[in-house]
């Protein structure tokens, strides 16, 4: 087990390193002069003289060859230094750290909403014996996935802030202000949960061991909750990493819709002014979330499914 843990940790670190490299190369190699872009990104975007450009080039080390720059920046990153924002001059790590709490707050409310909502929908859809209701419930996710998340947010604002002023439309300040963004963020995530769980529930309910349970005389509730749900939520667990990534990414859009501070604000600002160090930091942060969540899921999996334990103990590969 210890070997397995070490192996998984090494794997996670490998993915992070590769994500860092990918972001570095993507932003460095694609057409466009990063220095010119960054110089133009300063708050007073006046014309930059060639001398100033050369100065900047030297300041950010762009006059050195690529491998040297890469090695230097990777070395800095390992020490927690992700460079400084071109637009604000603040360290990227600090910028991210400041932006994180409101975003975490938002996702922390949205995640349980999504899991409970999506889970309840999947359970209800498979449990009901009413054919029409079942078809309706099963088709809800495919409707939900077709709605642009930002549009859902705007509709909520329109109806629940402007028509019926129940919740504030914008801002970070109050708890009530968290309701609409959290709901907006939860919708696509709930759709994902509902889709995966209902598919896997329908599959499990066809399994012979569910037939065995029925043949024992077990009632529907017992069959669903004691036998089907436990087995069905195992494959659903594997999408938790995707879910976390999706929440983080959608938070960017949702924060924009509701004019909230957070990761979304700094990301869109950074992309707009081509603030490369910040964008790079955000990409690596996204990968970090995904990798950490997947690591947790992988470690929790053997506790839930005993069949994995044996193979986990065996194969590090």
């Amino acid at each position: 087990m210890r070997r397995y843990l070490l192996w998984r940790l090494a794997q996670a670190a490998g993915v992070l390193w590769a994500a860092y490299t990918l972001a570095f190369l993507l932003l460095d190699l694609l057409p466009g002069d990063p220095v010119a872009a960054m110089a133009g990104a300063g708050l007073n975007s006046t014309q930059v003289t060639p001398e100033r450009l050369a100065e900047l080039r030297a300041e950010y080390g762009f006059d050195r060859p690529l491998p040297v720059r890469y090695a230097a920046s990777l070395g800095d990153a390992l020490r927690g230094d992700f460079g400084t924002s071109v637009a604000t001059g603040r360290p990227v790590a600090d910028t991210l750290a400041d932006a994180l709490p409101p975003t975490l707050q938002l996702t922390a409310v949205a995640l349980p909403l999504a899991v409970l909502g999506g889970g309840a929908l999947a359970l209800a859809a498979t449990f009901t014996r009413h054919r029409k209701l079942r078809n309706l419930l099963l088709s809800l996710p495919s409707v939900g996935i077709s709605l642009p998340a930002f549009w859902v947010g705007l509709m909520l604002i329109q109806v629940l802030s402007f028509r019926v002023p129940l919740f504030p439309a914008f801002g970070n300040d109050t708890a009530a202000g968290l309701v609409l963004p959290a709901v907006t963020l939860a919708v696509p995530a709930a759709v994902l949960v509902a889709q995966v769980l209902s598919r896997s529930l329908l599959e499990v309910l066809d399994e012979p061991y569910v037939g065995t349970a029925r043949a024992k005389g077990a009632g529907r509730a017992r069959v669903w909750f004691r036998h089907a749900l436990r087995n069905a939520s195992l494959p659903a667990l594997t999408v938790v990493g995707v879910l976390a990534g999706q929440l983080t990414a959608n938070a960017v859009v949702v924060e924009n819709v509701f004019s909230r501070n957070g990761l979304g604000r700094i990301t869109t600002d950074a992309v707009t002014v081509q603030d490369i160090p910040v964008v790079q930091g955000v990409v690596v942060f996204g990968a970090l979330v995904f990798v950490l969540i997947n690591l947790l899921v992988d470690l929790a999996y053997p506790l839930l499914d005993r069949r994995i334990v044996t193979s986990v103990r065996r194969s590090p590969a």
Binding site: L22, L27, G245, T248, V271, Q274, V279, V283, A287, F290
Partner: peptide, 20 residues
């Protein structure tokens, strides 16, 4: 795996940053 680890929107935003 690495492409998968970075949320799609972030990847897109990085490309937009580079390409304009």
């Amino acid at each position: 795996d690495v492409l998968l680890a970075v949320p799609g929107l972030f990847l897109s935003l990085a490309v937009v940053t580079a390409l304009g």
